[in-house]
């Protein structure tokens, strides 16, 4: 009897965890981008803050039951580049953004099959990426155009 009750409890606990959790292994995309006004706007970086590079790490979680998008976590560091390294002067300034994300089929005939849209919990507005393939996303501007980088950095996100 005790054994049966224990098994039922374990089963219920497992089912509860499965029902509420997102995929334990998110898709992770990384990038080093410029720090243009649109990116500053998306990431709440003050316009007068000395910034020439943003390092992005975007984790996209899916519901394990049906693979539909659930939560996202975006951690990013920004600041001035440290010459001769891939890092920042004084380590840069780190922030995080969390929320929900959606994936919609792109209706445009251009490259890219889906638009991934981040909807942050903490503030209004969205951040959109075009999915170019399974491994490569590209940040879009407020009008849905490709964000234009510079000679050093681009707004392309690469799967880790």
């Amino acid at each position: 009897m005790k054994h049966t009750r224990f098994l039922v409890l374990i089963t219920l606990a497992f089912a509860s965890v499965m029902a509420t959790s997102s995929s334990p292994d998110p898709m992770i995309f990384v990038s080093a981008s410029p720090c243009d006004p649109v990116a500053r706007h998306y990431l709440d970086i003050p316009k007068d803050f000395d910034c020439e590079m943003i390092k992005w790490r975007l984790s996209l979680y899916k519901d394990p039951r049906n693979q539909s998008p659930t939560r996202f976590e975006l951690s990013y560091t920004y600041g001035m580049t440290k010459p001769g390294t891939e890092g920042f002067m004084n380590g840069g300034f780190a922030k995080e953004l969390k929320g929900k994300w959606t994936a919609t089929k792109s209706t445009s005939q251009r490259a890219g099959s889906h638009v991934y849209q981040l909807i942050p919990d903490s503030r209004p507005g969205t951040i959109s990426f075009l999915k170019l393939d399974e491994n490569v996303l590209h940040l879009l501007d407020l009008k849905g155009n490709f964000m234009i980088g510079n000679a050093g950095f681009s707004y392309t996100m690469n799967k880790l």
């Binding site: 990384v30 080093a32 490569v136 980088g149 681009s154 707004y155 392309t156 690469n158 880790l160």
Partner: peptide
């Protein structure tokens, strides 16, 4: 690409 470089031209 990587966390620092992509194959993108602007």
């Amino acid at each position: 690409g990587t966390d620092y470089l992509s194959y993108t031209f602007n």
